[in-house]
C-alpha cells in the first residue's frame, strides 16, 4: 500500500465504441404507471455478478455491450473491475483478463481496457468498475432507454470521446490493491454462472394470465417444440419462430400490464418474449411467463439459437430465486474476507 485512494472519484474516457454499448442498471421502477419502461440490464444476473465482483451494489450502473460491439476505455481512479456475460477477449494494458473474476487495479494508475468481439459466445456482456458509473438520474433510474432517449449518457449509445464519472472507490477494495497492474482476487464459482455448452437452453415457465385460453393441444405443442430466436429480436422483445399458437376461441385483449419475460402471442401465432425495454402494456394473449432466474439465459441467445420451454411449479421458481440470492451472498462473504484465490492475471 503506497497511498490510499479511498473516497477518490474515478473517471473513464471512451476512446472507441462501436455497436450497442450503453450504461444500464437494475431498472427504473415505480414509473410503469406513467408508461415508462423498466429497462435495465438484459442479463440481470450477469450484471449483478459483475457488480458484486467489482465491490458494487447489485444494481450499480455498469457498461452493457451487445453482440459484435467493441469498446476501448481509458480509466482513472479505478480500484477493481469485473466482466461477466458473453465471453470475449478483453485486454487491460495489453494483457488478457478473464471474465467472472474480480480484477484488482491500482487506483493511482491509469490504464486502458479493450473489449473485443467474438461471433461464437452469447449476446450481452457487462463491465463493472469500482464505484459504479454515475450518470445523471432520470425518473429514479440511471439506465439508458434508447427509445425514450433518456438515461445513461444523453439517452444514447456510448460514443468515442464520452467521459463517464465513477462513484467513490470503496475503502475495502483499496486495501487490497497492489503496487501496479492487476490481480485476480476472486472468481465466481461455476454454479452461479449461466450454463454453458451446446445443449439447447431450457427456459422454465409459469402459466400466463391467458394460459387457459389456449387449448391443451396448443399448450402441449408449445412445451414440446423447439423455438428459434429470430433476427428481429432486440432489447424490447425476442421473437420466436416454431409451431404457431392460437387461442381458441380468438381473444380480444384490453391493454393489460406485462413484464420482462412475458410470452405474448400476436394474431400471427408466433410468440414474442418481452425483454427489458418492453412497453408497460400488452395487447396480445399472455401465454406464459419465463421465471425470473431464466431471463438471462434467454437474453444471451443470439438469432438462430433454439430454445425449449418447460412448465414448472411456482415453488421451483421461488427456490431458484432463493438459491441465487444465497449464492450471491456467499460470494459477498468471499470477497469481504479475502478468501478467494489470488494470482497474477
Amino acid at each position: 500500500m503506497t497511498r490510499s485512494a479511498a473516497g477518490e472519484v474515478g473517471q473513464i474516457r471512451v476512446t472507441e465504441a462501436r455497436g450497442c454499448v450503453t450504461l444500464q442498471d437494475g431498472g427504473r421502477h415505480g414509473f410503469q404507471r406513467f408508461g415508462v419502461s423498466v429497462g435495465g440490464a438484459m442479463d440481470p444476473h450477469a450484471a449483478e455478478l459483475a457488480n458484486r465482483l467489482a465491490g458494487n451494489p447489485a444494481d450499480a450502473v455498469l457498461v452493457e455491450l451487445e453482440g459484435m460491439s467493441r469498446l476501448a476505455l481509458r480509466c482513472e481512479g479505478v480500484s477493481s473491475l469485473a466482466l461477466a456475460g458473453a465471453i470475449v477477449p478483453v485486454h487491460l494494458d495489453g494483457r488478457p483478463v478473464p471474465f467472472w473474476a474480480r480484477i484488482e487495479t491500482n487506483p493511482s494508475q491509469a490504464f486502458t481496457i479493450g473489449i473485443g468481439t467474438d461471433r461464437e459466445s452469447g449476446r450481452w456482456r457487462y463491465l463493472a468498475l469500482s464505484g459504479g458509473c454515475r450518470p445523471a438520474p432520470v425518473l429514479g433510474g440511471f439506465g439508458t432507454d434508447l427509445r425514450a432517449g433518456w438515461g445513461g449518457v444523453e439517452g444514447r449509445m456510448l460514443h468515442s470521446g464520452d467521459w463517464i464519472t465513477l462513484g467513490p472507490v470503496p475503502k475495502k477494495s483499496v486495501e487490497h490493491a497492489g503496487q501496479s497492474g492487476c490481480h485476480i482476487w476472486s472468481q465466481v464459482s461455476a454454479r452461479l454462472r449461466p450454463p454453458a455448452g451446446t445443449q439447447i437452453p431450457v427456459l422454465r415457465i409459469l402459466p400466463g394470465s391467458h394460459w387457459n385460453a389456449f387449448p391443451t393441444g396448443v399448450r402441449q405443442r408449445f412445451l414440446g417444440a423447439h423455438y428459434q430466436v429470430t433476427p428481429d429480436s432486440d432489447r424490447m422483445g425476442y421473437r420466436l419462430s416454431g409451431p404457431l399458437l392460437h387461442p381458441d376461441p380468438p381473444l380480444e385483449i384490453d391493454s393489460e400490464p406485462v413484464t420482462f419475460g412475458s410470452i405474448q402471442v400476436p394474431s400471427d401465432g408466433s410468440p414474442i418474449v418481452l425483454m427489458a425495454d418492453h412497453p408497460t402494456q400488452g395487447g396480445y394473449p399472455h401465454l406464459a411467463e419465463i421465471i425470473s432466474m431464466d431471463l438471462g439465459v434467454l437474453a444471451q441467445c443470439r438469432a438462430g439459437t433454439e430454445v425449449e420451454f418447460r412448465q414448472v411449479d411456482e415453488q421451483v421458481a421461488l427456490r431458484a430465486l432463493r438459491a441465487w440470492r444465497q449464492g450471491v451472498a456467499r460470494l459477498q462473504v468471499g470477497l469481504g474476507t479475502g478468501s478467494g484465490f489470488r494470482g497474477e492475471a
Binding site: G30, Q32, E314, L318, L321
Partner: peptide, 22 residues
Amino acid sequence: FVEWVPGLRSFAVYFDPTRFSR
C-alpha cells in the same frame, strides 16, 4: 412491494415473493 401498474380493466403489482407471499 416494488410497484403497481394499472390496465384498462386490470391491475398488476410487482413484488419480492420472498418477503410477502402471493
